[in-house]
Design a protein around this nucleic acid. Structure first.
Length: 645
RNA sequence: GCCGGUGUAGCUCAAUGGUAGAGCAACGGUUUUGUAAACCGUAGGUUGCGGGUUCGAAUCCCAUCACCGGCUCCA
């Protein structure tokens, strides 16, 4: 009589199995179909291979391809197949790590005598197909003899695996062995879990190659990374690849040529943006919104210069902590001035220009301030990462018991603003970096303060340890671009340090002099990055209030020009950004061009319209929407613009 | 900065060692048009820049600049 164990299933039922049964046995005992489709198991909340031995009273959930968690297992296993294929094709290749990422996976290699290029990818894919055809099993093995495995890795020259194994030696390391017809053909030191075998891999694609430092540290060797993805079905893969293609069309750099938005010129320099008229209009609208919103919310607006003496940056600590990002220039002497990388020191001095009382705090001082930062050439990216940009900056000087409330107000402003543009965001709290100024005690207070504000506002956030600014911790709001890369937008930074360095004071109730607490914050982040984000978000089809041209009038032939011109003048007088297309081109031609320029409204005028005293309205994306009186159209579009639609 | 790729007319792209070409845009003319491209013509280039190999280079090599995909770093 063999012993029985009881297994708890997700539906609350209990299954009795023989001792030493595996998750696979469990699946089989439930149904043949489940056994066939099972990928892995969740045992007491942890993902495990199907081969995992179950114990009495375990809570077990069998995962199939329908469970979201199993996609990562598929991808991770596909990464192993990719690594095996790469080593088959490039025998000297050493493997490093190959994790899954949000939309796929990658694997890092050190290939001594070959530089991977995209031409290699189809070959590797072919080799992967062969491995899959071999129907290899993934077998989990506990590493009982670490020394033995280290020797094995040493013989193969797998220096990266050696490093990892030594690190994990005391944490029950596991090895995944790929077996073909029962014979081990490949292995990888890996935590798992994995697919039972390769036959589940049906749809994958290698996407790109890239360099990546071992363990992400630029002091280490640069490895060669292959990015790839995998899905359960060919259809899923196809729609993902299709998404990538569509996203590429939304790229703000691409749309910029089509819509004449901005340019970066060799003659000017990398990372320096020329705003063309169309994008300048959008910026103007955004800035107008920004100004009026800030006035409403009790901010004062200031302006400060683009450069300042080096001494100023000595006081602020920038020359010490931000040096490699600053441009020094010669004014009276060599390198005696700095192009401003931040606006804060100036605002400190404006604060300091007069005496302050607790009665007039908080002071909220805002500026659209253009800053210059030395970015590494390889980091530059369209309008998203540049060397000169305008921050919608503000510094809030307040008493220690005011700053939580001030953070609340900023979060509200961020939320209202991003809602207006229909943008979604993720929030991160960045804590003290290794190099920092100020007292540890203040840092702890500041971090606790930011946390408290987030929690009181019920905002979900992740902690980004050690990523704070040198002067204080911060809350970051991340925006996503067309293909899902995230960019920092709004940020709120608490600063207990600069006020001390600049010796800022206010007179408290009891007449004593106190140092104010300061918040740095931006809402858009930078006008450049935010504009780029908007282009991608709207795919160039800006809402009417932002659209560079809000309406275009299209007379059908020259004899309609006079009437068209009268409508044009009326609209112009009403403050609408309207254009009259009076070229002797066909109506269809003009419509096509207006459509490509993503102009929200086209007003077609021919005999019928003149007779009826109307215009024929064509809305972007909607086609012909019929005749409407021009006065009425003007009224409606003005309402739309006013409501920022 | 590092790894890999790319750079041809304003834009999108041809030409793989043998006279740089097309479409769109521009310009001139004809056409006067009913909801996504009328027709004819003209002009436009030291092939990113600089070297080299070669009888001959957009093409091969070296260097450099810029851009693209990543790494690192950050608004």
């Amino acid at each position: 009589m063999s012993e029985q164990i009881k297994i708890n299933l997700p539906d609350g039922s209990i299954k009795e199995l023989q001792k030493d049964s595996t998750a696979e046995n469990l699946a089989g005992s439930i149904s043949e179909g489940l056994k066939r489709n099972s990928i892995a198991a969740e045992v007491n909340g942890e993902l495990k291979d199907l081969s995992v031995k179950l114990h009495n009273n375990d809570k077990v959930r069998i995962l199939t391809s329908k469970d979201p968690e199993s996609l990562n297992i598929l991808r991770h296993s596909t990464a192993h197949v990719m690594a095996q294929a790469t080593q088959r094709l490039f025998p000297g290749a050493k493997i490093a790590i190959g994790p899954t990422i949000e939309s796929g996976f990658y694997y890092d290699f050190d290939i001594p005598d070959h530089s991977l290029s995209v031409e290699d990818l189809p070959k590797i894919e072919e080799e992967m197909e062969k491995i899959i055809q071999e129907n290899q099993k993934f077998e989990r093995q506990e590493v009982r003899n670490v020394q033995e495995l280290l020797t094995d890795f040493r013989e193969k020259g797998e220096i990266y695996k050696i490093e990892l194994l030594m690190e994990y030696a005391n944490q029950n390391p596991t090895l995944y062995v790929c077996k073909k017809d029962g014979k081990a053909v490949w292995n990888d030191f890996c935590r798992g879990p994995h697919l039972p075998d390769t036959k589940f891999i049906k749809a994958f694609k290698l996407l790109s190659v890239a360099g990546a430092y071992w363990r992400g540290d630029e002091k280490n060797k640069m490895l060669q990374r292959i990015y790839a993805t995998a899905f359960w079905t060919k259809d899923d893969l196809k729609s993902y690849l299709n998404f990538l293609e569509e996203a590429e069309k939304r790229d703000h750099r691409k749309l910029s040529t089509q819509l004449e938005l901005f340019s970066v010129k060799d003659e000017v320099g990398p990372g320096l943006i020329l705003w063309h008229p169309n994008l300048a209009i959008i910026r103007e609208e955004i800035e107008n919104y920004w100004r009026s919103e800030h006035r409403k919310r009790g901010y004062v607006i200031v302006n400060t210069p683009h450069m300042a003496k080096k001494q100023l940056w000595d006081i602020s600590g920038h020359t010490e902590f931000y040096n490699e990002n600053m441009y020094y220039i010669d004014v009276e002497e060599e390198k005696d001035y700095v192009l401003k990388p931040m606006n804060c020191p100036f605002h400190m001095l404006i604060y300091k220009a007069k005496r302050h009382s607790y009665r007039n705090l908080p002071i909220r001082m805002a500026e659209l301030g253009t800053v210059y930062r030395k970015e590494r050439s390889g980091a530059l990216h369209g309008m998203s990462r540049v060397r000169g940009f305008t921050q919608d900056d503000a510094h809030i000087f307040c008493t220690p018991d005011q700053f939580i409330d001030e953070i609340h107000r900023i979060i509200e402003l961020v939320d209202d603003t991003l809602k207006l543009f229909d943008l979604s965001y993720e929030v991160e709290l960045s804590t003290r970096p290794d190099e920092f100024v100020g007292e540890l005690e203040n840092w702890n207070k500041a971090e606790a303060g930011l946390k408290q504000a987030l929690e009181e506002k019920n905002i979900k956030y992740e902690i980004n340890a050690g990523d704070g600014a040198f002067y204080g911790p911060k809350i970051d709001f991340k925006l996503k671009d067309a293909i899902g890369r995230t960019w920092q937008g709004a940020t709120i930074q608490l600063d207990f340090n600069l006020p001390t360095r600049f010796d800022l004071k206010y007179t408290d109730k009891d007449g004593s002099l106190q140092t104010p607490v300061m918040l740095h914050r931006v809402i858009f982040g930078s006008m450049e990055r935010f504009a780029g984000a908007l282009v991608e978000h709207y795919a160039g089809a800006f809402p009417v209030w932002l659209a560079p041209v809000q309406a275009v009038i299209i007379p059908i032939s020259d004899k309609h020009l006079d009437y068209a011109d009268s409508v044009y003048k009326k609209m112009k007088d009403a403050g609408i950004r309207v254009e009259l297309d009076d070229r002797s081109e066909s109506m269809n031609y003009k419509i096509r061009e207006a459509q490509n320029k993503k102009i929200p409204y086209m007003l077609v005028i021919g005999d019928k319209e003149i007779e009826a005293g109307c215009i024929a309205l064509r809305a972007r994306g909607k086609g012909d929407t019929g005749m409407v009186n021009s006065e009425e159209f003007i009224k409606n579009i003005k309402i739309e613009i006013e409501n920022k639609k």
